[in-house]
Design a protein around this nucleic acid. Structure first.
Lengths: 138, 138
DNA sequence: TTGATTTATGCAATAAAGTTGCAGATTAAT
DNA sequence: ATTAATCTGCAACTTTATTGCATAAATCAA
């Protein structure tokens, strides 16, 4: 069986055309994608609603994660951990370039331990770093 | 002169009714606010567009900052630093409670230094911690 | 296989969040 | 008090996202 299809199965997702192509597209991109990026890329081959729903299933089944930012448009990227369980991808470091606007995951970085105020219980953390990325910094 | 009016002046903002009341409202709240929160609170006393535009002026003039999150709705909170310059409020730690959904700024925490990959230049950082807040953790 | 069952997709309609243009009102500077 | 700058409200519009439903496709079980 193909790798793409296998990945879908592992995440309890039925194998369909949109899903295979969307997953493929994510795997070919290092930076985070928006619904608009996908709609543009697939140029009417799939309905916009289907793309929204596919993003949602990918999210729910632990294939993608949503990246918090302040642009007002949802951005998604592949989860890098192997395994199926959701919410085990708890520490994210993302980098948003102020020049090219791309967001990428910095897997190699860890979020350092923090000492929260009394009675606060931390479940996960997302660090969004803004600046100039390696490509734009030339 | 009143404190509120003084703050507006310091931030180069004309003194108007909406601005005074919106600033007041932010000062009375420890958690971040959305446009919808304000619209609800002011219940038709100010136009929705005016509220949007006031948020934008507050943002541009360094009175508020936008908090990155993945809800798809813009959230704003007061900048705690004194002084007028924008972009000097570069390290934010925010806490989002999974129970009450409120977001608050954790001023006392600092984002630890990080070692970015080669050629990346960091300009600012936002750490969003999710979990259970002190009030809900009872 | 084939048929039954479950789930996904496309289309249309709707909702929610945010923006723009413009005329009249308000603020602040002289 | 007059003037110039800007803010506000209204209407229209755009962009992003969601819901309902009929049809189509994928999976399961015999």
């Amino acid at each position: 069986m193909q790798l793409i299809e296998n990945t879908l199965k592992l995440h309890d997702l039925r194998i369909t055309q949109v899903r295979m192509e969307m997953l493929q597209y994510f795997q070919n991109h290092t930076s985070a994608l928006t619904h608009a990026d996908l709609e543009l890329h697939f140029d009417k081959r799939f309905d916009r609603v289907t793309i929204y729903r596919t993003l949602t299933s990918f999210l729910e089944n632990g294939l993608l994660h949503k990246i918090p930012d302040d642009s007002g448009v949802a951005k998604y990227a592949l989860c890098h951990h192997e395994g199926v369980e959701h919410n085990h991808d708890d520490h994210h470091v993302h980098f948003k370039c102020k020049k090219c606007e791309k967001i990428e995951c910095l897997y190699t970085l860890e979020i350092p331990k923090l000492h929260l105020p009394k009675k606060y219980k931390m479940e996960n953390a997302n660090l969004l770093i803004e600046g100039i990325c390696a490509i734009c910094n030339n």
